[in-house]
Each structure stands twice: as structure tokens, then as C-alpha cells.
Design a protein around this nucleic acid. Structure first.
Lengths: 286, 286
DNA sequence: TAACATTACGTTAGCCGTAACGATA
DNA sequence: TATCGTTACGGCTAACGTAATGTTA
């Protein structure tokens, strides 16, 4: 059976052009290389080189074989990686959430169904979630972006959520029932960074707000208590009557902040995750 | 670098189910196998087997790897075959002709353009020519069937030819200028076997002729001289005024026997054969 | 006890490196 | 004469086979 090392050597030779440079690059001696290349030729039953007394170069067949060998090597590399990936997929998987509440609600459901699995959880903006799903970085995503390709993905609605603005009772906006984001232009708002997709930095209306950015959660919480700056809160808390002390919640009218959540996996993983899909419905996260 | 032999062993084990049968199949000892499989696992960094005291079987990852390995092995096999094919394609190629006259006329043109090549020439019915072109059995074909897929093939008209029936001057049909094949039902005709596609055995009108089949050319030629059976001849001879002695040529009207020839190669070989295509036109064979 | 996998150990084939040689620019 | 490829040869690693051991149906 053909020795893959010889293919590797052939590919390296194509890059290095001379045996001595190839030998240096592969950390072996020139005589070893001479013999490797002769062996490859005899194994394949084909001449690959044009040999002169102190010069050697690939002939047409050699060039063809070198390019082809490169593909073969990358196939073998893929094989190794995919076997490892497959093995890991049997004992664990990765889930990405687009915001806090879906993570808070769905996380224990997933844990319950896969008690012996290593489950990696990530909370992030969901712009790239489908890409990351395709690349097997995550096997399960919770996103507010509806899947486009029904042949590729399996999904189910798993809830909805609306953004509210929380203002002190004596704030100028406190009489309002709802508000458009446009009206918040230049208004100072305490904005916590770890809000997943809610932080829509590419939304111009959102950009025009004067964000007082908070990266530390305890600082953020304290500022909400001690200042009268508005902050964001979602329907999850409103629906449960959980209000920040001395504050009123005003619904944000813009549709971008009134979203439906989808639990999505690749169709090929449908059976694997079916028990999770069976446990949820469109009101699970709400 | 991963040893391909170990993949071969893995695939064989999947087929044989036990190490002892695998060992027998591969002509090596069981202990060697045990070690090979352990090495494969350590090379990949993954467990592939469920081991009990006197039993071993593939786990999920092992099954996945075995199927994947099969593909890798066939890739490597293809690699070897294709390198050899490529090498051969550099020093020679194979041409198939659908009948005698195209071979007679085009053959020297091809020889002239590729003086240092091994050129294999075949004359045959052209039913399968496109298939044989796809499979690289031939690199160039001359056929009367126009190529369908213009993205795949490169071609040029290279001539046309019509079939005639040659009858003695005193024959009952000798006053006719042309004739339909239907009228030859049950007529006895001397038919030489090596006429390429002209022998249309799947054509019912052709089948109904009473063929006096001739496999040997000199016998065929003698019978034409000494008997008054009609025989077939083509426009090539008629056009040149070459007549069989004491015979008259009658044109066959059916369109199946009035054909255009095409010289065809794969589009990927276009450059290689371009000089031949430049030497011919639609009247070269006629 | 027959069939199977594994462990232990001595043997050997094959590949590598060092050294020496030959050709070229 | 410096660089490059090839040949010759001795040493070592890695994989094999034989023999022995342990387990199960």
C-alpha cells in the first residue's frame, strides 16, 4: 500500500524545488530523500522526475501527481479531524444563545435531557450563528433570526420577548406607555454589554442613543439603584411583575426589539436533539 | 503521518467482524492486528473499539471512521490509477472511428500531427462512443452521432457519407437511381461485418434484408466479382468514379444511411487536439 | 475445549544518517 | 570550489511472528 509520507515528501519537493532544500524543510538527509522519491516512482510505476547529473525536477506527470497528492493529504487531514469531531459530538455539544433569558430558561431543559454530556454554552450576538452552526462550532443555536433554508435546518419557535425601557417614576418619560427608539435620540441610557443580540450596534436608531456602557454587572446594578438614568429590561420581567424599585417600564415599539426566538439545529442532528424540541413550545421563553 | 495500512486494516475488520478472521484475510497474525488497531487509536487520539475480555467490536466512532476510511482508501486508489493514466495520456492516446472511410482519411492526418505518440486506433459501431470518451477509453472519436452536451465536448463536422447499393448491370434493380431500404426486404445482400456503424442491426428495415454475412474481406471481394448479389458501397467511391466492375450504384434514400461525421473530444482535451481540428473541415471525409 | 483477544519476547526488514563520490556553474 | 544529487554501508527502530496466557460460550 502506498506510503503517505512519500506523498508528503513529493508535495514538499514541489514547494522547495531542490532536494537539499526539501531535506532541510523535512529535517531529513538528502540521501534519504533520493531514496524516498525513487521508491515513490517505483510504487506508482511511473517516472515523476527529469534527472540530470546534479539537478532534478518534476516532469509533467510529477507536477500532476504533486498537485493531486496535495488533495489526498488534505483529505487524510480532514479524516483525522472529522473522526475526532465525531467522537466529541457523541459525548458533548455546544449551544449558543442570543440573549440571557433564553439561556436562563432553556439551559436547564437541555441539561436535563443530556445528563452525561459535556455541554458548552455560549451567549453572544446571533449575527453569525448560522455560520457557526454550519461549521459545527455549535450544534444547537437559539436565535431571533428565522432560518431561511428549510432543507438544511430543523427548528421550532421557542418563545418571544420584547424590550422595555425602565425609567424612574419621576422621569420625564414615565407617563408614556410605549415609545419609539427614534425618540430616544441623544437620551442617556445605562447599557449593559452582555445583552446578546439586544445590543444592535448596526441599528442606526440604536446607535443614536447616548449609551453609558457598562461592562461590570454589579456596577451596572448599582447605577440603576443610585441614578435616574433609564436602562433596558425585557418582557420576561415585566410579565412576572418584577420591577426595578421606584421605576416604570415603557414598551419599545420598534419591531427589531420585539422578537420571536427559534431553537435551531442541522437537519442531520434532528434525531439527536428531538427530545429537547419535544419539551419546548412557542411560549417556553416568554 | 497517519499510516494508510492501518486504515486498510480497520476497513477489513469492519467486514470480518473478528480479529482472527481479519488476520486470516490479511495474511498476518492476530497479535500484529491487536497492535495495529491500538496504534490506530493512539494515532487518531480516539477510542474506536468496545473491548471485552475475549471480544472486540467497533464503537460508534469506529464505525464512522471505518466508513470514512473506505472513502479515503478509494481516493488513494484513484490517485494511483489517475497518475498512471495521466502519464499514458502524455505519450499516446486512443482514437475510435465509426467506419472505414473516416479512418482511412483521418488516420494519416492524426499521425502527422502526433509523430512521437503511441496512437491506438479502433473501428467499431459508434453506439457507445460517448460513453467510452467519458471513461477515457478513447480520447478522440469520429462518430455520426452529433454530441448533445456542448459543455462537455468539443467537436467539429469532418465530413459526410451516403450508403449505396451496388448491383450488377443486369440486375433487376439496375435501372433504379435510388431505393428505400424497405424495398430490400428479403433481398439477399452480401454484407461485410467490419463496416462500423453502417451495420445497423437494431434498425428493423436493415434486419429484414437477407444478409449474406462475410467476415473475411478477400472472400467478400471475390464473391462480389463472381456472384450477382448486391453489396453495399459508399459515396466515397461513387464520388471518385470508382465502380466495382460490371456494377451500378443505387443511392439508399433512408436518412440513417446518409450521415454527417463529427470529430469529438472532451473539452478538457481541446488544446491538445486543436491542431487536428484545424486541419479538417466538413468536407474532409467525403 | 474451542475460539477469541491480549501479552511477552526474540527476530528481522526497511529506513535513516554518515561518509564518500561525481557532476556542474 | 561550492552546491547539488547519488551511491555505499552500518546501525537502529518499528512491526512482525511464535509462544504462552487469560476469558468466554
Amino acid at each position: 500500500m502506498l506510503d503517505i509520507n512519500l506523498l508528503k515528501t513529493l508535495v514538499t519537493f514541489e514547494e522547495c524545488q531542490t532536494l537539499s532544500k526539501t531535506a532541510e524543510s523535512l529535517y531529513i538527509s538528502q540521501p534519504a530523500l533520493t531514496k524516498q522519491m525513487r521508491k515513490l516512482e517505483s510504487d506508482l510505476g511511473v517516472n515523476l522526475f527529469i534527472r540530470k547529473k546534479n539537478h532534478i525536477e518534476l516532469n509533467e506527470t510529477g507536477k500532476f501527481a504533486a498537485k493531486y497528492a496535495k488533495r489526498i493529504l488534505s483529505n487524510i487531514n480532514e479524516f483525522q479531524n472529522n473522526v475526532i469531531k465525531y467522537e466529541q459530538s457523541l459525548t458533548g455539544f455546544s449551544v449558543a444563545f442570543c440573549s440571557e433569558i433564553p439561556e436562563f430558561i432553556l439551559s436547564p431543559i437541555i441539561d436535563d435531557e443530556f445528563p452525561n454530556y459535556r455541554i458548552n454554552k455560549v451567549m453572544d450576538d446571533d449575527k453569525d450563528f448560522y455560520n457557526l452552526l454550519d461549521k459545527s462550532v455549535h450544534q444547537l443555536i437559539v436565535t431571533h433570526i428565522k432560518p431561511q433554508d428549510n432543507n438544511k435546518y430543523y427548528y421550532k419557535k421557542c418563545g418571544h420577548e420584547t424590550l422595555y425601557l425602565s425609567v424612574p417614576k419621576n422621569h420625564i418619560l414615565s407617563q408614556r406607555i410605549d415609545i419609539g427608539l427614534k425618540e430616544l435620540e441623544k437620551v442617556s441610557v445605562l447599557t449593559y454589554t452582555k445583552m446578546g443580540f439586544w445590543n444592535q450596534w448596526d441599528n442606526i436608531k440604536f446607535q443614536k442613543i447616548h449609551h453609558l456602557i457598562q461592562t461590570d454587572h454589579s456596577t451596572y446594578a448599582e447605577l440603576i439603584q443610585t441614578t435616574s438614568y433609564p436602562c433596558f429590561i425585557t418582557s420576561y420581567f415585566v410579565r412576572r411583575g418584577i420591577q426595578l424599585p421606584r421605576r416604570i417600564d415603557i414598551k419599545i415599539k420598534d419591531s427589531e426589539f420585539n422578537c420571536t426566538y427559534y431553537l435551531v439545529c442541522l437537519k442531520s442532528d434532528k434525531e439527536k436533539f428531538e427530545k429537547i424540541f419535544n419539551k419546548i413550545d412557542e411560549n417556553t421563553v416568554s
